[in-house]
């Protein structure tokens, strides 16, 4: 049996024991899943502190909900879904103006030509892109995180975000349009 198959089996066993209320198994799941969960959450959270708070609250909610959760549901997307709900709860409590937004719902003309890498180095472009993602509205940051950090399909994103698949496509399209515009604007 390959290492990955063994890992999958161990993971399934941990998952089963954790669902039955075994705290040690749950703590092992925390160790295994927190790094990836943090990467995804950090991409849509406003800052490091908020990302850490969301991850911690996600695990607390998961601990309370795990015994009642559906047995055959994969753990990782379920955790991401909880994290998104936690983030939405946090953002709901904050004032809307806490979120910088680099644009409204207006569409930007897509330039399918050469990218900004011709005008700046890749490192600079990536740094600018990170800043651009941070300035996107929360729901756009979420689709970017789920698509590019978690590697989810549209179907998985729709399920995790509890949105119709076409809305997810629209959000991603608009997020990318805004990022293109942001990257192609020299004076920002």
């Amino acid at each position: 049996m390959s290492v990955s198959r063994e890992q999958e089996r161990d993971e399934a066993e941990l998952d089963r024991r954790a669902r039955a209320g075994d705290p040690e198994a749950f703590d092992r799941l925390v160790e295994n899943h927190t790094p990836r969960l943090y990467r995804i959450v950090r991409r849509f959270a406003s800052d490091r502190g908020e990302a850490e708070a969301i991850v911690q609250e996600t695990w607390l909610r998961a601990w309370r909900a795990l015994p009642r959760s559906v047995d055959d549901r994969p753990l990782a997307p379920w955790l991401v879904r909880i994290a998104i709900n936690v983030a939405r709860d946090i953002w709901r409590k904050k004032r809307p103006l806490d979120f910088a937004d680099i644009g409204g719902d207006e569409e930007f003309l897509e330039d399918e030509g050469p990218g900004p890498e011709e005008r700046m180095s890749q490192k600079e472009a990536l740094e600018k892109l990170v800043r651009g993602v941070e300035r996107l509205r929360p729901e756009y940051r979420m689709v970017i995180a789920l698509r590019y950090e978690a590697g989810f399909s549209y179907q998985e994103m729709a399920s995790v975000l509890d949105l119709p698949i076409n809305t997810v496509r629209t959000h991603l399209h608009r997020a990318k349009s805004e990022l293109r515009h942001w990257l192609e604007t020299d004076d920002v």
Partner: peptide, 8 residues
């Protein structure tokens, strides 16, 4: 670029 984006 989005796939290569660094994270904290």
């Amino acid at each position: 670029l989005l796939e290569m984006m660094p994270v904290d």
